[in-house]
Design a protein around this nucleic acid. Structure first.
Length: 825
RNA sequence: GCCCGGGUGGCGGAAUGGCAGACGCGACGGAUUCAAAAUCCGUUGUCCGAAAGGGCGUGUGGGUUCGACUCCCACUCCGGGCACCA
């Protein structure tokens, strides 16, 4: 019998799947569709072990659904724009394109070597001009639909690199590349109006078959809150409301606590600060504002985390409309300009932040909710009856929080002071990056026409090749050939936008392009999209739980609303699975720590099948796993055992029988059907680790069976082995393909039909009945599954072991035949 | 601070409220071998016992139940997410 040698078997099958296009699917394929998609990777070179885990799970499902008669769409692509390539370019001076292409070749080869199969005709890359064209085209459609706008926004600016940094590039307030101190700068930026969809993004989470954890994270991120917005009249020197200036709007979720508002606070960036600051305080306020401005976020947060909230008195006052009394107006950095109205009513009695601020600035504190008697905290945020909250036309005293909220809110409406308001924490998506290696934003600046979109005919706008990476800042801003163009409207000289798009834009629609990659009239046709969407199973890491997965949902809704995608297609990802990370010694794997695992080396030594099996076996797929915990030896040993057992020239036994099967044969036959049932179920439930245990168990059983003195019954054994090989085919594709070919005259296991368990064989006729005394097992019997309650009880009481535990008559006997009898002594 | 997960043998982990520890690793014993590796067959939670058998065992404390790893309450430790969102 030839040895099992994965190094010769595996490439052969990989070639065959690729050459024959086994997993290609045409759009007019008549089979019921399944769209199985693993998040497309950033091409960083050969696959790392995390990739292998991710793509093994996806590949298993692709092969499993195919064997179940489905027409599976299994595409792969590359998220090929992004920082690492640009950083490498800055180091070497080489253009990021050849660098990126080389990494894609390496990663493609890795994926092929782990046996992952795709419809390679549909493969795409973000930096492919054809893909860029449609990314830009969609941008223009969004622009036309009013979903794109420009606004000033504070950004992280690295003075050394002359560029904007993403939050994750700012480490302890410094640039992760140059180590310069990062500044906050206000710059004009491009935004997608994702907040238009905040409510729908929140509502439709409920219907998604996603991990609860991810749905919760998105809910929190969207952060819907219900409250009221109302105006605080500006007070004159005598404390009376002025009618000549508009009031200061504030947002609160607790209108019921209005009587406890003893001061008001504006964000330092609030546009009305100058107007509302008194002359005496102006200098101090200016000093405070510039101090806040130069602080990085991190400093601002760490200092303000201390109990004393940092702030300053404006010298001005506003009127508390509930009490009619003037209250001082402050500036404080714990109030954020970006949320609500950028100004708040401060109620120290019911809000800890306001409490802290009131204490450091010696301000009045009035409780408006009665805390319980045993309450010994500071601000009381719990429920209770309202107190100190009455005036002539509004009496909240005694009402609970919910009632008081409603009544106070109604009063604000009646008085024409304000209205109920819903706020979201979600901000619009800042999509522009001052980077070279991204998809350029297709807009121009014309001196006479202003900001103009480019016509579709000029797309794609591709970054030039002859650029200098050794200079500081994005090369696009210095490339005259790229910069200078003509205005599409008036034909006069104009400048091109040099910002590129966030790479999350590419990943927000790539899964749609997969359905129609040959289309050169549109990014995708509605027909192709409705043929394959929604994605039946999306697979990726939890690190994308919020941004990527929120952006794809936004894109889907927007594309549907502007008529590019089917109108009723609101959600792109029907089912999501987030697999865990692969770690090293409890920590994250990273090249800098030198603790990476090279999957290619493992494949060289043990084969892709052993690695795939080890990935499936080691832990439930959702959990993080340490590389040290992988059981590669055990998995490899199992594969060798199965090979030896299932190979037609096996040396394990020499005495196969024909004729009538005996009892032992029947037990094997039954076990095979139980295995079909079990594994099918476990594949569906992502319980791959227990499925592998099932294979090992069954194989161990077969070893004992064939080595027993009677020898195996040939037909029974063949069926059992064929079953294992088929069931294992999605998980361990190369070896099972080879074994099946040897056993079945060249046939291809992945084109066979998934076995179906014979339900009649799953019916058990004898079971082990356990007998407990006071919940402890004292005896067990093999009994018929149809045993009566009386028989079961009699059997239990007849047990010597049970009698030894009994002291007199049992108090009570619970019979759950045929599985258990519990005797209470 | 708030919101999620999770604590089970020497280790990774199994277990619709019904035999805790499947399967694998490791360890130990046996077969094979001149010998070893590989392979094959066993044993392996822990304590007492020669054995039969018994005591104790799923982070801690309580509760519900005939019966709890599983459900409920409180606590604790570990991991993750968000973090002044009014």
């Amino acid at each position: 019998m030839p040895r099992y040698t994965p190094s010769t078997i595996e490439p052969r099958w990989q070639d065959l799947w690729a050459d024959e296009g086994t997993y290609n699917i045409d759009n007019d394929d008549p089979r019921e569709k399944r769209y199985v998609l693993s998040m497309y990777p950033y091409p960083s070179g050969p696959a790392h072990i995390g990739h292998v885990r991710n793509y093994t799970f996806g590949d298993l499902l692709v092969r499993y659904h195919t064997m179940n008669g489905k027409g599976v769409l299994s595409p792969i692509g590359f998220d090929s724009f992004g920082l690492p390539a640009e950083n490498a370019a800055m180091k070497s001076g080489e253009h990021p394109r050849p660098f990126t292409d080389a990494r894609i070749v390496e990663l493609t080869s890795s994926l092929r070597r782990i046996g992952a199969v795709y419809d390679s005709r549909r493969t795409l890359k973000s930096h492919d001009p054809m893909f860029m064209k449609w990314t830009q085209w969609i941008f223009l459609r969004f622009f036309e639909a009013g979903l794109v706008y420009r606004a000033t926004s504070p950004v992280n600016w690295c003075p050394g690199c002359q560029t904007v940094l993403a939050n994750e590039q700012v480490i302890d307030g410094r640039c992760d590349r140059s180590d310069d101190l990062v500044e906050k700068r206000d710059m004009e930026q491009w935004f997608y109006k994702i907040t238009d969809y905040a409510q729908e993004l929140l509502d439709e989470l409920d219907g998604l078959d996603w991990p609860d954890r991810v749905k919760t994270m998105q809910r929190n991120w969207i952060g819907r809150s219900e409250g009221a917005e109302f105006g605080l009249p500006i007070a004159d020197a005598d404390g009376n409301a002025r009618s000549d200036v508009p009031p200061l709007p504030v947002y609160t979720t607790r209108p019921d606590t209005g009587f406890g508002m003893t001061f008001a606070v504006m964000a330092p960036e609030h546009p009305r600060v100058d107007e509302l600051t008194s002359d005496e305080q102006r200098e101090a306020v200016e000093a405070f504002r510039s101090q806040v401005n130069t602080k990085s976020d991190i400093e601002r947060m760490s200092t303000s985390r201390a109990a004393d909230k940092r702030g300053i008195f404006t010298g001005g006052s506003v009127v508390n409309p509930f009490t009619g009394k003037p209250i001082p107006l402050f500036l404080a950095d714990y109030v954020l300009m970006g949320y609500g109205t950028g100004a708040i009513m401060a109620v120290p009695g019911q809000d800890q932040r306001d409490w802290d601020f009131a204490r450091t600035h010696d301000l009045e504190i009035v409780r408006t909710v009665q805390p319980p008697d045993d309450f010994d905290g500071e601000a009381y945020v719990g429920t209770g009856p309202a107190i100190n909250s009455a005036r002539e036309d509004l009496d909240l005293d005694g009402l609970d929080v919910a009632e008081a909220k409603a009544k106070a809110s109604d009063w604000l409406i009646e008085q024409d002071l304000g209205e109920p308001k819903i706020n979201f924490r979600l901000r619009d998506w800042l999509l522009s990056r001052q980077r070279f290696w991204g998809c350029p934003i297709p807009m121009v600046y014309c001196d006479s026409c202003g900001l103009r979109p480019l016509p579709d005919s000029e797309l794609p706008i591709v970054a030039p090749d002859d650029v200098d990476f050794t200079a500081i800042g994005s090369p696009l801003t210095k490339h005259e050939g790229f910069l200078n163009t003509t205005c599409p409207d008036c034909g006069e000289p104009a400048r091109r936008e040099t910002d590129t798009m966030d790479t999350f834009v590419d990943s927000s629609w790539y899964f749609l392009r997969f359905t129609d990659p040959w289309n050169d009239e549109l990014p995708f046709s509605k027909e192709a999209v409705s043929r394959f969407l929604p994605v039946d199973q999306y697979i990726g890491g939890v690190e994308h739980a919020i941004l990527h997965l929120l952006y794809t949902r936004f894109f889907m809704k927007a594309l549907a609303d502007i008529g590019l995608a089917p109108k009723d297609l609101r959600e792109p990802m029907k089912r999501l699975f987030t697999q865990g990370m692969v770690r090293m010694g409890g920590g994250k794997m990273s090249k800098s720590k030198g603790n990476t695992v090279a999957p290619e080396a493992i494949i060289d030594a043990h084969g892709a099948d052993a690695l795939r099996l080890a990935i499936l076996q080691v832990k439930p797929p959702a959990e993080d796993v340490d590389w040290e915990d992988f059981q590669l030896e055990g998995c490899e040993r199992f594969l060798h055992r199965l090979w030896r057992l299932a190979h037609p020239e096996t040396d394990l036994y020499s005495n196969p029988r024909d004729g009538e099967p005996n009892e032992a044969d029947a037990a094997i036959e039954t076990a095979a059907h139980v295995l079909i049932d079990r594994v099918s179920n476990e594949y569906e439930r992502w319980a791959y680790n227990t499925a592998v245990a099932g294979f090992m168990e069954f194989t161990n059983t077969l070893y004992r069976y064939v080595q027993a003195p009677d020898g195996p019954h040939q037909a029974t054994l063949d069926h059992a082995l064929d079953t294992v090989v088929q069931l294992l085919a999605p998980a361990v594709p190369h070896m099972t393909a080879e074994l099946w070919k040897l056993r079945h005259d060249g046939e291809h296991v992945h084109l066979t039909t998934w076995p179906v368990a014979d339900q009649a064989k799953l019916v058990v006729d004898t079971v082990t009945m356990i007998v407990q005394v006071n919940g402890k097992v004292r005896d067990r019997f093999e009994v018929s599954a149809e045993i009566s309650a009386q028989e079961a009880q009699d059997l239990a009481l007849g047990s010597e072991n049970v009698q030894a535990q009994l002291d007199g008559e049992p108090k009570k006997i619970i019979v759950r035949q045929p599985k258990i009898v519990n005797i209470v002594a």
